[in-house]
Amino acid sequence: MSVRIVVADDQELVRAGFSMILDAQPDIEVVAEAADGAQAVAAVRAHQPDLLLLDIRMPNMDGIEAAAVVSAESDCRVLMLTTFDLDDYVYDALRAGASGFLLKDVRRDDLVHAVRVVAAGESLLAPSITTKLIAEFTSRRPAGPKAPPPERFDVLTARERETLRMIARGLSNAEIAQAMVVSEHTVKTHVSNLLTKLGLRDRVQAVIAAYESGLTVPGQAP
């Protein structure tokens, strides 16, 4: 079964290049292209793809707004494109529902791999990279008293909350398993349970939730 994709970028050559690379894969089908955010949203509504490859900066409706609309309306995964590795909009894009981001100068093989990973339900970013990214953007926000974790975290068991803290600090499943002295399978179960209970799509959203709630803070040691 093919992964169905919409490619959205206002630069025609970039859009066409990505589409050509992806459509050449036996397990990937580009069902539509879009030149701006509004067209991207319309294409997702019309074709119900598995994944939207979406540029952050586009006319009419930018990628962040488009990602928020698509994430709210459908189960379509969103993979963002950006020119810079610490684009000022990356944090907002992840918060809007994106499952990760790619640089526009990404290599062919890395592009294909990223699409497959995100389409399979995983977040693109490795835990350590995610932590650095979120810490960078949360540290720019005005300092204030640490807010208590919201009531939504009350649904988590002590082990699930501990797992969430470790995810937010950048630990992999293997590292969490070692720290908690449990199997990786048990950690995967904790991760799956906490994502379900909190209504989160993936580890990226879990990291954001942990930072924004004050459950963990940038620079906090594992």
Rank of each mutant, 00 (worst) to 15 (best):
R4W: 09
I5E: 01
I5Y: 00
V7C: 04
V7E: 05
D10S: 02
E12I: 15
V14F: 00
V14H: 01
R15W: 08
M20V: 10
M20A: 15
I21L: 07
P26W: 12
D27M: 05
I28V: 15
V30Q: 01
A32I: 12
A32P: 06
A35L: 05
A38L: 14
V41P: 12
V44N: 00
R45F: 00
L51G: 06
L52F: 02
L53F: 03
D55V: 13
I56Y: 00
N60D: 13
G63Q: 05
G63L: 02
A66C: 08
S71Y: 00
E73L: 11
D75C: 07
R77P: 03
R77Y: 12
V78S: 03
L79V: 13
T82K: 10
D88Y: 14
Y89C: 10
V90G: 01
G97R: 14
G97F: 07
A98Y: 01
F101I: 13
L102P: 07
D105C: 14
L111D: 08
V112D: 03
H113I: 12
H113C: 13
A114T: 04
V115M: 04
V115T: 06
R116T: 08
R116N: 03
V117G: 03
V118L: 05
V118K: 02
V118G: 13
A120S: 15
G121P: 11
S123I: 04
S123V: 01
A126L: 02
P127L: 02
P127C: 08
I129M: 14
T130L: 10
T130A: 05
T130F: 01
E136Q: 13
E136M: 15
P142E: 04
K146I: 15
P149A: 10
P149V: 00
P150D: 06
P150I: 08
R152F: 11
V155A: 14
V155Q: 08
T157Y: 06
T163H: 11
L164G: 02
L171M: 13
S172F: 07
S172C: 07
A174P: 09
A174L: 02
E175P: 09
I176T: 11
I176D: 01
A179G: 04
M180L: 14
M180E: 11
M180Q: 15
V181G: 03
E184V: 15
H185R: 01
T186S: 07
V187W: 00
H190M: 13
S192L: 10
K197W: 10
L198I: 06
R201N: 14
R201M: 12
V204I: 14
A206D: 07
V207H: 10
A209R: 10
A210N: 03
E212T: 03
E212I: 07
E212L: 04
P218W: 05
G219D: 08
Q220W: 01
P222S: 01
